[in-house]
Nucleic acid binder design. Structure first.
Lengths: 110, 110
DNA sequence: TAGATACTTAGCCAAGGTGCTAAATATTGC
DNA sequence: GCAATATTTAGCACCTTGGCTAAGTATCTA
């Protein structure tokens, strides 16, 4: 997957307010899918799909532990995915601390 | 318009790759609608609507000069609109240079 | 193996987004 | 006022998205 597609996927994922809230909630540490679903008024399957979109965009990771599937924020991926764009459009206002996205050494996962 | 709605509008606007490219193009200085349209393979009316979305999100400003309507990047608005979210989710990776978004004194335009 | 729990996948539907062409509006210049 | 130019608005078609319920898969417990 190219860097540009990463960027597109990340921005599409961030377009939905529920998904943005999930990312904010995960800031406090990993959460099981059910724990996430319990924080919203929508059904568990809908949350599951949102989590799928976030995972597809590389913004979260999942880890199975017995019955439960824990989701965790992939902060670095979020920053690298949208970092190129932000640096291109408003470099004076927003600064990236880790500019790995520029080094060209990208991790390549499925 | 509330700050949260600003944020939602900005992220929805950024979801489309054409609109992101328009913002990048405007980084080089203001451009007339027709000049922007000429850079894309899609029709002028479609570009016009994209510009309307960007303007609605407060990410660009428009200025009429005779026949032409020039669009300019509103960099500070972009930074403030998405800044709160970025600071909430990945504060270690991304730093805001101007944290006006925290002062609560938001400019209110139509 | 059977049942309970946790989560996802499948299928449906309403709503919204994005593209197009044609028509309307605004401005310039003769 | 009329024609030309620049841009937007209107109306339509198509696809995607996001919600739901029902059904399927995976894991634990007994």
């Amino acid at each position: 997957m190219t860097e540009a597609q990463d960027e597109a996927g990340a921005f599409r994922a961030l377009a939905d307010p529920t998904r943005r809230q999930i990312l904010e909630d995960l800031r406090g540490g990993e959460l099981a899918a059910g724990e996430i679903a319990a924080r919203f008024a929508i059904s568990a399957p809908s949350i599951s799909r949102h989590l799928g979109v976030l995972k597809g965009a590389g913004l979260v990771t999942e880890r199975r532990e017995g019955n439960r599937i824990y989701y965790a924020l992939a902060e670095d991926r979020l920053a690298t995915s949208i970092g190129r764009f932000l640096s291109a459009v408003c470099p004076e206002q927003i600064v990236l601390r880790h500019t790995k996205w520029r080094s060209g050494a990208q991790s390549e996962e499925s």
